[in-house]
Simulated scan of single mutants.
Amino acid sequence: MNKNRITYWLMIAIIMVTVGACTEEEGPNPNVSVITVESKTQNAFDKYLDEIYRKPYNIRFMYKMEDIESDMDYQLVPALYENSIKMANLVKYLCLDAYEDVAPDGFLEKYFPKMIMMVGSPAYLNNGTMVLGTAEGGLKITLYNINNLDVTNAAALYRYYFRTIFHEFSHILHQTKDYSTDFDKISATDYVGGSWDDAWDSGSSLEAGFISDYSSKETDEDFVELIAHYITNSEEAWAEKMEAAGENGSAIIGEKMAIVKAYLKQVWDIDIDKLRASIQMRASKLGEQDLDKITIE
Rank of each mutant, 00 (worst) to 15 (best):
I6S: 07
E38F: 06
K92A: 04
T181K: 15
Y158L: 00
P28F: 09
T7V: 13
S121I: 06
N126P: 03
L286Y: 03
N147Q: 10
I186G: 07
E100C: 00
Y160L: 13
M117R: 14
Q42K: 15
G20K: 01
Y57T: 05
V224G: 05
Q280V: 14
I165M: 14
S187K: 14
N126F: 01
Y81F: 13
K86H: 08
T181F: 03
T41I: 12
H174E: 12
S204M: 09
K114L: 02
Q75G: 02
F166W: 12
S70H: 00
V34K: 14
V260G: 08
L157A: 08
E100F: 02
Y179H: 11
Q75R: 13
A88K: 02
V91C: 02
S84I: 06
E225K: 05
L76I: 13
T36C: 03
N126H: 10
D182L: 09
I186T: 10
E236F: 03
Y230K: 09
A13S: 14
K140V: 05
A258F: 07
V267G: 01
Y57R: 01
P104K: 09
T219H: 09
Y81R: 13
D213S: 14
K86L: 03
D271T: 04
S234I: 05
K293S: 09
K177D: 08
K274T: 03
S195V: 08
A199D: 03
A79L: 04
N29G: 04
M62W: 00
M72L: 12
N89Q: 04
T7L: 15
D46T: 08
S70E: 09
K241C: 04
N233Q: 11
H171E: 10
K110P: 02
A154T: 14
G287C: 03
L10T: 14
Y144T: 02
I259R: 02
D50E: 15
D178I: 04
A98Y: 05
S215I: 04
I52S: 05
W238M: 13
E247Y: 08
T23P: 00
G128W: 05
D101Y: 06
V267F: 00
I279M: 14
K64W: 00
P78V: 01
A251P: 01
E38N: 12
L10Y: 00
K293Q: 13
L10P: 00
P104A: 06
K285P: 00
Y8A: 12
S250C: 04
Y158R: 15
Y93D: 08
I35G: 00
L291F: 11
N145R: 10
K3S: 09
L10N: 07
L90N: 06
M72Y: 06
I59T: 03
E26W: 15
R163Q: 14
K114S: 05
L49W: 08
V260S: 09
N43L: 08
A98N: 05
K293M: 09
K241H: 09
T295I: 11
D105M: 06
L286I: 07
E82N: 13
W268E: 04
A135C: 11
S84Y: 07
N89M: 05
T23K: 10
D184E: 11
